[in-house]
Simulated scan of single mutants.
Amino acid sequence: MSNREPQGSATINIHTNESSPLLPKPQSLQPDHKRREIIGLGYMTLSALGFSTMSLCVKLSGTSFPSFEIVFARSIIQTILSILGCAILKINPFGQPGVRKWLLFRGFVGTLGLCLFFYSITQLPLADATVVFFLGPAFTAILASIALGEPFSLFDGICALSCMIGVVLVSKPQFIFGGETPTDDTTEWKRLFAVFCALLGAMMSAVAYVTVRKIGRGAHFMVHVVYFGLVSIVISPIGMFLFQNPVMPQDSGEYGMLLLVGLTAFIGQCFLNQGLQMAPAGPGTLMRMNDVVFAFLFGIFILHEYPDIYSISGASIIVLMTSAMGIHKIYSHQKTNR
């Protein structure tokens, strides 16, 4: 809203420091490494399509089901499929002992981020919720500099600050922009709360991404999906009964929509976790831009949600600044390795 057991392929940084994966990895030849990165970027693009389709299904399901129930349905389907995948690939679904605590942590923060994102989708236009959640890469860059020792320059800081300006344009708070219906204060605060949830969800996704990078190839991507699903199955019912009222599906159409949420999420999750372990952070960020593109297309042509000039401007700023950060990281990495 990333696991793999087979060890292989090299990492960019071969020094032993905070950014090194928990389990050692052998070095590979440069041509193989380059090919691996290109495949990883393709996986990231496919993950964007999978997650955007999932978001569309969540938006359509949100008219019938509360957000935590949608998360719960997704988690059940995701867990079943991932365990079957592990069985087919002959992979231990619980991973290696040295990384299990990190896998649990990744599943926990990923689940929180997912619950927050799903709620924002049900309350906001699809494109707006996706754009705010897309701040995840900016938060990832900041967190990676703190937790993994990756560089974070003044340029990156300016881009991150500009992204926050983009969020303000997308959220359009009435105390800044005014409003045509000043009496509807409840609706305004509810909308701003949904924006805040999307923002917090983006922060949680950043923590999850950095954890995946930390684990590296210490766990098969399917194992990440298993942990994510299992943790979600535990957490989402708690939120569903504490904060919302569960609703039973009434017909095959509603069951089918929940099934699609789980299937598209599973596909997106597999491609994302695989891509995160194969693609460099900078180019991978650029590929995730497709989330926003797909969200706007789905919103306009399927949901008939037409963004105003503020949303378009804010989305453009966020996409451009996030892209600039990614390109800057690519350039900096190439310069360092010359």
Rank of each mutant, 00 (worst) to 15 (best):
M240R: 02
E69L: 05
G107T: 07
T285P: 02
Q78E: 15
Y331S: 12
Y227Q: 04
T11Q: 15
L263E: 02
E37C: 02
F221S: 04
L103W: 05
G253C: 13
N92S: 10
N245R: 15
L46W: 09
I267W: 15
M289N: 06
Y209I: 00
F133L: 10
M321H: 06
L49Q: 07
L242N: 12
E37H: 12
G110Y: 11
V223I: 06
A206F: 07
A194N: 07
G282M: 00
I317D: 05
M240D: 10
G62Y: 07
P6C: 12
L46Q: 05
G256V: 01
L192F: 02
S82I: 03
L154N: 13
S162P: 04
F221T: 09
G85E: 01
D32M: 11
I302G: 04
V71S: 00
G157A: 12
A73Q: 01
F298I: 05
V212R: 03
K25Y: 06
G256K: 13
S82L: 07
V132D: 08
I165D: 08
R74C: 00
S153A: 03
N273K: 07
T53A: 02
K214T: 12
S75Q: 02
M1A: 03
T181Y: 03
M287S: 07
L89R: 14
P137Y: 01
C159F: 04
F51L: 12
I317M: 09
I327H: 00
A208E: 05
P6Y: 14
N13G: 08
G201Y: 06
S52D: 09
L60C: 07
L116H: 01
I91N: 05
S236L: 11
Y306T: 15
F155S: 15
I165L: 11
Q27C: 03
